[in-house]
């Protein structure tokens, strides 16, 4: 590794740390009630911080990171830089099962539990991913694979819409807002739950780093340096599904973070080494989501935007830019 690149890595990570700290504190301080470090911590402000802003900020941070890492894992799996949980319909699959759960279990019996929500989302995510893998075995074409993912997303969304159309209003209480993607419903229990799940998944990710590194040269070469392809593939899929399922369960489908952030990090670091890209993607995803959430809250306050609207607004142009660039380099 050339010294220039080491220097670059240090700068990028330092920058990410600073940005993350800044975004975190701004998210805590800014809102309808402005709080700064001089504000006296009376009961009311403490309540706002501890019960509303802190959980929300933690969620945006943890889940944003999770989404970016999930995207990175999928990109490695499909050897395709445009793969991501949202575009491949994995988020929609998770959304479908969570909606199913919310309408029929939570709505009717009035029972919710964070872990069961994640489990429901996980099942949906795995289902979509399973479909994608089946299709990817038949078509090797990158564009066709994405089209298939988008179609699966549409199917899942259609089924979700059906369910919503036929459900009673009382059953939809929990669903509103959530299905568009928003961190507004965050509470402390959910934040703790997501921290536990995401930390676990991230630790497992680091066990996979060596295999992911080898997979950059494709399966045959990865095998030849000792990677057990079958178990490695299953682990990647499980991990990326659980990460994106966790996001969908708590915040609904959030678009483009999974594609845009890993791409930005690859460009910033000028490397595709998983051991540095996974933490970098996590941190950048966290920053991206924190800023997006802040904008969703503040741009048209007191009206709150969907976080997906904000992430799309910033993420989609990045993806378009990426496509143009790749196209250019493949022509040369």
């Amino acid at each position: 590794m050339p010294a220039k690149n080491n220097y670059r890595t240090i700068v990028v990570f330092a920058l990410l740390l600073v940005l993350m700290a800044a975004a975190f504190s701004v998210n805590i301080c800014v809102g309808n009630v402005r709080i700064d470090f001089n504000t006296a911590l009376d009961h009311k402000t403490a309540n706002i911080i501890l019960n509303i802003r802190l959980p929300r900020t933690i969620m945006a941070l943890v889940l944003g990171g999770a989404l970016a890492v999930s995207g990175f894992l999928l990109q490695t799996y499909f050897l395709n830089p445009i793969a991501g949980p949202y575009i491949l319909g994995i988020s929609s699959g998770a959304k479908m099962t969570v909606a199913l759960f919310l309408i029929y279990a939570a709505g009717r019996k009035g029972y919710t539990n964070n872990f069961i929500m994640v489990l429901a989302a996980f099942a949906g995510a795995l289902m979509s991913t399973g479909f994608i893998i089946l299709i990817s075995k038949r078509v090797r074409n990158m564009a066709a694979l994405l089209a298939a993912g988008i179609m699966i997303g549409y199917i899942c969304n259609a089924i979700t819409d059906f369910m919503i159309a036929f459900a009673d209003d009382s059953e939809l209480v929990n669903l509103h807002g959530w299905s568009q993607g928003s961190f507004s419903g965050a509470d402390m229990a959910g934040a703790v739950c997501s921290i536990i799940i995401v930390t676990g998944a991230m630790l497992l990710c680091f066990f996979l780093v060596k295999s992911l590194d080898a997979l950059r040269l494709g399966e045959a070469y990865a095998r030849s340096v000792g990677v057990n392809i079958r178990s490695c593939r299953i682990l990647i899929i499980l991990l990326s599904s659980i990460l994106s399922a966790c996001v969908t369960a708590f915040a609904g489908p959030v678009s483009f973070v999974g594609i845009a952030v890993p791409f930005l990090m690859r460009e910033a670091l000028q490397s595709s080494k998983p051991v540095i890209l996974i933490p970098a993607s996590f941190m950048a995803g966290a920053v991206f989501c924190l800023i997006s959430d802040l904008m969703a809250r503040m741009l048209f306050a007191p009206v709150e935007l969907n976080i997906s609207a904000v992430t799309s607004l910033f993420g989609a142009p990045i993806v378009i830019f990426m496509l143009i660039r790749r196209h250019k380099s493949s022509e040369n």
């Binding site: 070469y221 030849s224 340096v225 000792g226």
Partner: peptide
């Protein structure tokens, strides 16, 4: 595969496109 990787290495005809 782990054991095999220390005894046998390969060059194949598949074209690889690792990024960066």
């Amino acid at each position: 595969p782990k054991e095999l990787s220390k005894e046998l290495s390969i060059v194949n005809t598949q074209r690889v496109k690792p990024e960066l």
